[in-house]
Design a protein around this nucleic acid. Structure first.
Lengths: 229, 229
DNA sequence: TAGTGGTCTAGACCACCCC
DNA sequence: GGGTGGTCTAGACCACTAA
């Protein structure tokens, strides 16, 4: 059997685990490794690039490849549509629009995502239910300068989340997560007790350096976000 | 200038944004694209594999390549050592061991990470400070069957986090995040008010299918975890 | 400036899996 | 069965950067 890039990855990881190549140590160059594995340089290259992607190795031209001194590995997680997240558990999804208004962008939002003073936004509040239990409360602001079409969307049948995914197929986003205490209003919507700890995700979405939308997602009591690496 | 794989990625993303290739649509095959870009098939292949990795495309042999119907993109975030996270902000890091004992693994932990009934664990409680302000409270259980050397480590000068990174250079991990209300004990350690919302990260680390350690990390009030995609 | 990784090519064989 | 993507090769040139 031939030596593939996955075999090489596994072998490198083995050597790291066995402390043959401790953190910070330099690995042999690609050419040398290719010879010892009996394969082409490109195959070694692919294996090592993969390991950089996984956060295991560091590479610099001329300097060489070394085991990352601190194994600050990269975790990945998928960000699905709320609907898909709910349906994946086998529960029935229901969406409801709570509030909708067009207004000038509030100051905190203008500062957060760098909007002009006169930018109009569509402000939405929605609820997402799983088997009729509150799952997520969504506060969202859509930049009407960037997405003027949103002005004519009622968002009564389709959630802004899904609509935007269709309208803006690809974009960049910043994400952050935090724990906050429920306000009385949030408690009402989420069926939580006053002061309950709420998991919040905040997301800004961008397209070509222009802000598309900003959202604050408040999850039901006990929600857990999972990731792996 | 030659057409590189990054140019091809950019071009594909452009076409998706312009809705020339809407979600669910099939792209031309690699050979056809290679001809139209005037480059080798391997170059197109690399670009498209990258986009699969980014969560933009889906590929199946024989079927072809299509734009992911739902853009459930992959977010990535790095998980650094607490010390590095703190020092990156310019603050001074301080570590303190609060408690240390060897005991049989508690039932919830045995169930969580599949341990035998008689497994011994080293139970640790530590504090991490940023400029002498409480930053993180860490509850940790180290599996002594897997990592017997931990038994002889005092963990008074070095945090289990850093020690384990050195001892177990590479491993797999599960991660989850949640918001919880502070217990009185947590409030004491973190300087939080009773019932304050606390951001919690829980992590299990594995090596060759054997559990290495389990940790619960409680962050200071107002902590935000950031990610991008 | 010399050595290392980054990328590309043209061709090849193969595994998978939809039709 | 046949078309698609997955992978590998042997060679080449290039870009970056540490020494």
């Amino acid at each position: 059997m031939r030596t593939g890039y996955q075999d090489i990855k596994a072998d490198i990881l083995d050597k790291i685990r066995q402390n043959l190549w401790p953190p910070g140590a330099y690995l042999p160059g690609e050419i040398e490794l290719a010879q010892s594995y009996g394969c082409a340089r490109a195959t070694v290259n692919r294996a090592m690039r993969d390991l950089v992607d996984d956060g295991v190795l560091e590479r610099k031209r001329k300097a060489g490849t070394r085991v990352k001194a601190v194994a600050s590995q990269n975790a990945r997680f998928a960000i699905p549509l709320v609907r898909e997240e709910i349906e994946a558990t086998g529960a029935t999804y229901r969406y409801a629009l709570v509030e909708r208004q067009t207004r000038a962008a509030p100051g905190w939002l203008r500062a957060r995502v760098q909007l002009d003073a006169d930018t109009q936004v569509l402000e939405l509040r929605c609820m997402h239910f799983a088997d009729n239990q509150p799952f997520q409360l969504e506060d969202r602001w859509i930049n009407l300068d960037t997405i003027p079409d949103a002005r004519h969307q009622s968002f009564e049948a389709i959630s802004p989340n899904e609509w935007l995914v269709r309208e803006v197929p690809f974009s960049k986003a910043d994400l952050s997560f935090a724990a906050i205490n429920a306000t009385p209003e949030m408690s009402d919507f989420l069926g939580a007790a006053p002061q309950d700890a709420v998991f919040m995700a905040e997301r800004s979405t961008w397209m070509d350096h222009r802000n598309v939308t900003h959202a604050r997602l408040y999850f039901h009591r006990g929600y857990r976000m999972m990731a792996q690496f």
